[in-house]
Nucleic acid binder design. Sequence first.
DNA 1: CGCCAGGTATGAT
DNA 2: ATCATACATGGC
Length: 274
Amino acid sequence: MTQYTARLTGAVPFNLQETFECGQCFRWLPGDDGSYTGVVGRNVITLRTDGDDLLVAGLDQAEAEQRLIPYLALDEDYAAIQEQFRRNTQLAQAVDYARGIRVLRQDRWEALCSFIISQNNNIKRIRGIVETLCNTWGEPLPGGRSSFPGPEVLASLTEEDLQPLRSGFRAKYILDAARKTASGEVDLDHVASLPTEEAAAELCRIRGVGIKVAHCALLYGFHRIECLPVDVWMKRVMSTMYPQGLPEELLPYAGIAQQYLFHYSRSHPELFEA
DNA sequence: CGCCAGGTATGAT
DNA sequence: ATCATACATGGC
């Protein structure tokens, strides 16, 4: 029986399933009662909806507010963002399909590393590889979960060491990212201070990080909500819905628009045929 | 079995 | 600059 120890009030709009299963994160698992359990830093956290509130297990009230309000983007004005999005007919459909999506503020390194693994891969297998990565090199946490291993831990490994991960050609990319990040050759704090375009260029110095992975890392790990990752699904969306590109007034929130569109297109593949 | 997956690096036009 | 292809592995 889960003991909920904190409550976040007024989490609207917010939906756990839509937020955790829309493809932005890979480590939140559904319970049998509508709850979700995941790892934030060194904490195993369970969340459950109670009306307009979120019940939190794994943190006390002060920690929950301090850590989860930013993590869950509860400080972002989604009412205003959605109101803007609804003025666009195409986007309105996607928003109405999953009104409870929020783009999370994840850990920078975790987002970068996870989306390196994501390239030319399917989400089911990404989840498996990330979980194995954590269980093998992260620190054990309650409930059989593990922390996401820091770059300094992975930096000392070899491709051979990573073989059990079954990450294929991405292994060398993971190691290059770990080494450059751990050494400060690519300094994520510095990246965070750069203008978006320069930040992306800096991340692209890592082997296996191209513009799409860089934009994912920036959007999900640095909360640069103007970043628009374009993968195979978004290519279909853009060509069928926005052949002229996203309307200019949406560009400041392109990353969030992308999240609704990405989720909608994956759920309605027939609408976006080649 | 064959095609595809939240792409990128590399080498050829 | 733009375009094709290889890349590891496994889901479906």
